[in-house]
Simulated scan of single mutants.
Amino acid sequence: MQSPSHTNWQFAVHGRQLAVMEWGNPQGTPVIALHGWLDNAASFTLLAHHLPHVRLIALDLAGHGFSDHRPVGQPYYIWDNVADVQALVEHLALDEVVLLGHSLGAGVATLFAGAFPERVSRMILLDGMIPLDYPASQLPESMAKALRRGARLSRRTLKPYDSFEQALETRINSRWPVSREAATWLLERGMRQTADGWVWRSDMALTQPSIVRLCESQIAAFVRRLSMPVQLIMAERSEELSLIETMLPLVADLEFKTLAASHHLHLESGPAQQIANWIRESLRGR
């Protein structure tokens, strides 16, 4: 499939540049799309193909894709992504948006919508809903474990790939496999060529465990404030499902669906078509 035409642009947040891919109709409903961990904005390419009448605005989260990394030594906390989404909404001068989030991006969307429910008209969440948590009683041990592991990871370097094709094969056969076409979209935005070979653009600090996470009761407080319609689309047998079951009754207006697909359901041909159909129906009901 030929990739749908898009524009690339950037905006500044506290001296850092965050990158954006935008597809579709500039006068269409603005949908801000937030990708998963170690993915990038190109993960929404297939959905953009099926949603030409929507203004689809996909952000490269900090440390991913073409966006700048956070300063050395600064952890990647999920609430900092929420602040970056707020900066994007303000930069676009939008009073209200639709949020589309996958996995990590779904957790960011939920926190943003819980903090600013008046700014979000509707949410579409793909195989995810909330951020990972640390039980409050286990926070000291979790912090110590994360600090020890982070110290080890900070000394680690990744060997470059000899070719783009080698990197492509690795991504296709990874823990969360995707098609060759989808992997190409992700890697064209997620890798760069150096004198030593092909390396990831993403910040290695993203692989370090969180020193602090929200606890379940804190996350629940955000979920209870989701006053807008929420469409949650999960992959069958999803690893994420057990993490969100206790939160589902807290959502006032929830439409829950499942698809026979993998974690990257929006990058599979059939599931992506169905998701796009549901999004169009959802937006018609605004």
Rank of each mutant, 00 (worst) to 15 (best):
A19W: 11
V20M: 12
M21K: 15
W23Q: 06
W23N: 00
W23A: 03
G24H: 01
P26D: 01
P26W: 10
P26L: 04
P26C: 02
G28R: 05
G28K: 02
T29I: 14
P30K: 10
P30I: 04
I32D: 06
I32G: 09
A33Y: 02
L34S: 13
L34P: 06
H35G: 00
G36K: 05
W37G: 06
N40F: 02
N40A: 13
A42V: 13
A42P: 09
L47T: 05
L47A: 01
L51R: 01
L51T: 06
L51K: 04
P52T: 05
P52L: 12
H53F: 09
A58E: 00
L59M: 12
G63L: 04
G63R: 09
H64Q: 13
H64A: 08
H69Y: 06
H69R: 12
H69L: 09
P71N: 13
V72M: 12
G73I: 04
Q74G: 03
P75A: 03
W79S: 08
V82C: 05
A83I: 08
A83W: 09
Q86Y: 12
A87V: 08
A87D: 08
L88D: 00
E90W: 14
E90D: 14
H91M: 10
L94Q: 05
L94V: 10
D95Y: 07
E96V: 03
V97A: 12
V97L: 04
V98K: 11
L100S: 05
H102D: 10
G105I: 01
G105L: 03
G105V: 03
G105M: 00
G107S: 13
V108P: 02
A109L: 07
T110V: 15
T110I: 14
G114A: 13
F116D: 10
P117S: 07
E118D: 08
R119D: 04
R119I: 05
M123A: 07
I124G: 09
D127Y: 11
D127S: 07
G128I: 02
G128C: 11
G128Q: 09
G128F: 01
I130M: 12
L132W: 14
D133E: 15
D133Q: 14
Y134M: 06
P135K: 10
Q138F: 08
L139W: 14
E141H: 14
S142F: 14
A144L: 15
K145G: 08
K145L: 14
K145W: 12
L147S: 11
L147N: 04
R148K: 15
R148S: 15
R148F: 09
R149I: 10
G150W: 13
R152L: 15
L153S: 00
